[in-house]
Each structure stands twice: as C-alpha cells, then as structure tokens.
C-alpha cells in the first residue's frame, strides 16, 4: 500500500491580461502527473526550472490548489474538501525548504521556530515543550544551548538542520524536501544528506525529494520521476533511469552531468554532442505537436517512458 498516491494531477495557473484582467489562458504547470510513493522510500523528482516539480510538492502540502486529479495520502483523499481533512494531514506531511537563510524567521529563537508546529497541533506545557525541542535538537545533532539562539548565529548546514528539526517535530510520515541542499557547500551538503538518510531509517520517513541535481537524486532515491514542461517523460527505479534511459530528454539530461573523471572528458564531450544532435533531430518524434511529452508507456514493471505510439 502506497503512502501517497498522486493520480492525473493537474495544476493550472491562470494568466490574466487585457484591460479588465480577465483570464486569457492557463499555464499548465503540472499537466497530468501520476506517481505513488511507498512507505519508507525516497522518491526523486527531477526536472529543469519551470518543469513543474516544485509545484507538485507545493500542491501536495496544500500551498497550491490543484485544478484536477486526485491525491490520496494514507488512504485519505486530499480532494476538494481539503479544509476538513487538512488539519490531520498537515501534521503528517512536512516540508524542508531550499534556502536555510530565508526559511527561518530571523526574529525568532530556535526554540520558537522548532516548537511552532507543536504549538499549532499539541497542547504542551512549557516544560514538556522544552524537553521535546531538546530531544529534536539532539536528533539533528545540535547542542541544547542552541535553543535560545537566533538563526543568524548558525552556519548554513546548521540552519538546514534546524529546518529539519522543525519538519520532524510532529513525527510526520512524509517529508517533501525541495532542493534541500542546493544552497549549501559540498561538505555541508554531505552532512545534511547523510543525516536525512539516518533519520529516514530511524523514523521510517518517506521522502519526496525535489532536485535538479542528478547526483544527489541518484544518491538518495529509490524511484525517480523525470519531468519536462509539466509532464512526466520517464519514471523508474534509480538504476533503470541511470543505466537504461529510454526517453531522449532523459538521455540528454544524463549526458549533461559533469563527470568527476578528467580522463573521460573528451569521451563525454563527444557523447554529449551526439545526444544533443540526436535530441534536435529526433525531438519531434518524442514530443507531440505542442512540444509536450506523450503519455507514459510501460517498459518494465517499474519503468515507464513517454514514448510515441509506435513504441
């Protein structure tokens, strides 16, 4: 049983124009996306800026309204009457944001930042609250003295840990991590990624990891979905995507990743050029007349790609 199931999700944003600001047309930020995440797994969502990956995360947590489709979380539908179901679900789905500098209120102490979700959902005495926060700080590897400090007194990595402590305060089931490390230095990035893996095991968390960095996605994810202009082009296990990509866009994305081996560089340049030429030549076969991806077709039990009708 999947923890979360997204079925044919569409999120359109109206573009207003003209003298009376009437709706002229829609931006199809997410245009018919389906996927599901099993409990305890990490699902990586990849795409370039504007592909709609962030919108999916924001829609699941309720920051964007869905235009149509169905999101089922823990057998509860997050449908139209979100208000009623919302409250309980809000506890179970939390978010880690990209920028640890702007996502923490600079005027609040760490204890107030971390305790905020607790105060919203649980009635705790000051003493109970303090011990809970202390416990959370311990989990994210910060000392208890951190409680009474302000965000600016911490480094980027530490701040991201504070953000994580806030996200796990209510024992959520699903964490949506939107580019959780892209604002951090490499060494700090490793710290946060390792830590996310640790608490995943410990607390049996499920991750929806949104990133443009394929290295991180591969390192963290069990399943991967690749998005292009609001639609899926390919979905599969990490191995399937990286070793046996089917869609021309996936191939192009993968070929663009810089490799750490300098002796391979000429090979990579050539391959990249080849894939790019192929992309230019064949893209009309892989995308419909509007330049959008076709519906997904199964390649294997877990592997799907948006290939044209004839296969």
């Amino acid at each position: 049983m999947a923890l979360i199931e997204v079925e044919d999700l569409k999120v359109y944003f109206p573009i207003r124009g003209g003298i009376f600001r009437t709706i002229q047309e829609y931006v199809r930020a997410v245009d018919g996306v389906s996927f599901s995440i099993e409990k305890g797994q990490t699902y990586g969502l990849v795409g370039e800026s504007g592909s709609g990956k962030t919108t999916i995360g924001r829609t699941i947590i309720g920051l964007n309204k869905m235009t149509s489709g169905k999101i089922t979380f823990d057998s509860i539908s997050l449908g139209e009457d979100r208000r009623r179901s919302r409250l309980n679900i809000q506890k179970d789905i939390q978010m880690i944001f990209q920028d640890p500098y702007s996502s923490l209120n600079p005027k609040k102490r760490v204890i107030d930042i971390i305790a905020e979700p607790l105060r919203n959902f649980e009635k705790l005495s000051t003493q109970e609250e303090k011990s809970r926060v202390q416990n959370l700080l311990d989990i994210v590897g910060l000392s208890p003295e951190a409680m009474y400090k302000y965000p600016h007194e911490f480094s980027g990595g530490q701040r991201q840990r504070i953000g994580i402590a806030r996200a796990i305060a209510l024992n959520p089931k699903l964490i949506i991590a939107d580019e959780p490390v892209s604002a951090l230095d490499v060494s700090v990035q490793a710290q946060v990624l390792n830590f996310m893996q640790d608490i995943q095991k410990e607390l049996n968390l499920t991750y929806l990891l949104i990133s443009h960095d394929l290295g991180i996605i591969r390192h963290m994810s069990d399943y991967i979905g690749i998005m292009y202009k609001g639609r899926y082009v390919e979905q599969g296990t990490a191995d399937e995507i990286f070793t046996n990509p089917q869609h021309i866009y996936t191939k192009r994305l993968l070929s663009a990743i810089p490799d750490i081996d300098p002796r391979q560089r000429e090979v990579i340049f050539e391959k990249r050029l080849k894939v790019r030429d192929e992309f230019v030549k064949l893209s009309k076969n892989y995308f419909d007349e509007n330049g959008l991806a076709f519906p997904l077709k199964p390649i294997s039990k877990t592997h799907f790609a948006a290939l044209p009708e004839r296969g």
Partner: peptide
C-alpha cells in the same frame, strides 16, 4: 572534498562529512 560529492555513477556509499 572529493569524498563528499555524491557520484552520479551510482555507488551508494555514505558520503564523507
């Protein structure tokens, strides 16, 4: 530094911190 980079070539070893 070299050990702390997640590699896109696959190995899921722990990253060095």
């Amino acid at each position: 530094l070299l050990k702390s980079v997640p590699s896109s070539s696959g190995a899921k070893s722990r990253l060095h911190v």
